[in-house]
């Protein structure tokens, strides 16, 4: 009788301990999950930025005999499985770059350099996501890594290949104007949003910028 009582008490004790362990683990999972919800990933800083031009250094590195650039009409990011149409965009009256509404389309800032040109930066921007249409094609930029391939195609079928050299994340107020430079060696800059999302303003706090240089 006493043995049976001891066995029952031991069983209850084991069960209570297991219950405590289960509750503790569950609470930890919930706490960690909620913490991740409230804290976006750390800002991205990968690779080395292309060297800016200086007055004492020639800024044209491509032969003057190389072809002039082409107006980009298609963007491909093979590592991210992205292929998106490119449309020309400009700066709006409010001073912000006008990004195409559809997150499946990206914009070429048309005052910037042509793709495959001999100088300056070609600027492409696109939505990371949209309230109406979900994730954007440039949401893959956060996962871009140095060495990734980027391809721009022109209307006449010309293909210009680039390799990612750096990924940076800036608060929007600190986006360097140099990313829009029309002088210096040729490079490609891809811009989208990142960081924390402000639900009230419906805007992100940061910009993710991918720098790529021509290859081949």
């Amino acid at each position: 009788m006493a043995a049976a009582f001891d066995l029952a008490r031991a069983t209850v004790s084991v069960s209570r301990n297991a219950g405590r362990w289960q509750a503790g683990t569950g609470a930890a999972c919930l706490a960690f999950g909620l913490a991740l919800l409230g804290n976006p990933p750390a800002p991205v800083e990968l690779g080395a930025l292309p060297a800016p031009s200086t007055p004492s250094r020639p800024v044209v590195t491509v032969s003057a005999a190389s072809p002039a650039g082409t107006i980009p009409t298609q963007l491909e990011l093979p590592a991210g499985g992205v292929s998106a149409p490119v449309v020309p965009v400009a700066t709006g009256a409010d001073g912000a770059l006008v990004v195409p509404d559809a997150p499946s389309t990206v914009g070429w800032w048309s005052p910037s350099s042509l793709a495959g040109g001999r100088r300056g930066t070609t600027v492409i921007a696109g939505h990371v996501d949209s309230a109406a249409e979900g994730m954007g094609v440039l949401s893959v930029l956060r996962r871009a890594r140095p060495g990734d391939e980027v391809v721009l195609r022109g209307a006449e079928g010309r293909e210009v290949r680039y390799a990612v050299v750096a990924v940076r994340q800036y608060t929007k107020a600190e986006l360097p104007p140099e990313v829009f430079s029309s002088t210096g060696p040729p490079q490609l800059v891809l811009i989208t949003c990142g960081g924390r999302f402000d639900k009230a303003a419906r805007h992100y706090t940061d910009n993710v910028v991918v720098h790529a240089v021509p290859v081949g």
């Binding site: 991740l36 700066t91 996501d129 309230a131 979900g134 929007k172 107020a173």
Partner: peptide
């Protein structure tokens, strides 16, 4: 002409990407 250097780039209105890569882990 719309050629001024942009003062900012607003390129996201949904918020889905804020969860982004961590979505599966969080869920």
């Amino acid at each position: 002409a719309g050629a001024s250097t942009p003062a900012q780039v607003d390129a996201g209105t949904g918020g889905q990407a804020a969860l982004g890569d961590q979505a599966l882990t969080v869920i």
